[in-house]
Design a protein around this nucleic acid. Structure first.
Lengths: 169, 169
DNA sequence: TCCAAACCCTTGGATGTCCTAGTATATTGC
DNA sequence: GCAATATACTAGGACATCCAAGGGTTTGGA
């Protein structure tokens, strides 16, 4: 976006919160703001790596999900639930992936309401290549220490469970 | 988005990664995916709280930033840098806030290229109310423990610094 | 002094996300 | 068996983000 700032804007915000008498929530505010910003940075990195493949993160996620499905196909509503995005977002992604011949829609054999999304051969190949690139360029260079990764997984896992994402354990 | 899943989809993804021989990056992948999802959940909560005020998070952030500026006014490029978003995003937010009479554009006194954004009285009032609501409904109920908050601030702060957000310290 | 390079903001386009319907198909209950 | 309810997908609209490009303003070196 530009040159680095001389000071951490989120730390500044936290100080402002404290200065205005909201010290009791200043720290969570800073943590939440940091999560938002971190997501933005990570998403930008991911999109940069995926761009040469003609993929966006949303489309990649769908391809990756399908590549792990036993039959390489999933109902759209299942994909929506697993990716935790709105059904219309899946429709959007499938439209574009279908145009690129990476997935194909097919009617569900027994339920006329349901549409199955199926990975094409090219889709499977591209998913594999894109995953290798992401593993090498993003996940393998996250910059988080192993302990921090474990901590993030645990803390954010609890948060997501409490938020109603899943009922596991 | 819907009913909770029976199992954590991110933990499943991590297992899939390991099963496919990418065990060395499975954990960072899971941590990064969890950050993306957590951001989505938090953003939804924030937008829900801000909706009654006619604000989105992007617009709120700009109002809050201006409310902390000594003069209540900032150049657009400054706001862009501090919020860490693209200049066009600021243009967009200012357009809408200006239509709502919450901010006003004014020419910079000495630099003809620059436009100042200034908080109106209504803008300042609304910022205060919206902040109180966010503090009560989101930041005050984050669900993160105090230790976890500190850890998140530290780990994500390091990440953001390494990513080039700022040069502090 | 003067023109090229740098900088600032805006417009237009591509994507993604969500919400609110609307259409079609299944399921349920009487 | 049929009507009422629930479920699945899609169309259209509102917003946000980024990139690329264009027009105006400053700055800096020849």
């Amino acid at each position: 976006m530009g040159t680095p700032l001389p000071r951490d804007p989120i730390a500044d915000a936290q100080r402002n919160w404290e200065r205005h008498g909201w010290g009791d929530v200043a720290a969570p505010m800073a943590a939440i703001t940091a999560i938002m910003r971190t997501q933005q940075i990570l998403l930008a990195r991911i999109e940069t790596v995926l761009k040469p493949f003609g993929l966006t993160f949303a489309r990649y996620e769908l391809l990756a999900l399908l590549s792990f499905a036993r039959s390489g196909a999933l109902p759209m509503n299942k994909a929506s639930a697993l990716l935790q995005v709105h059904p219309t977002s899946v429709t959007n992604a499938v439209d574009r992936l279908e145009k690129a011949a990476l997935v194909a829609r097919s009617p569900h054999p027994t339920d006329g309401r349901t549409t199955l999304i199926e990975l094409t051969a090219e889709g499977r190949t591209l998913a594999k290549k894109a995953t290798a690139a992401l593993n090498a360029e993003v996940f393998g260079k996250s910059g988080f220490g192993a302990d921090d990764v474990d901590h993030l997984i645990r803390v954010l896992g609890t948060f997501r469970r409490d938020a109603g994402d899943f009922t596991d354990e």
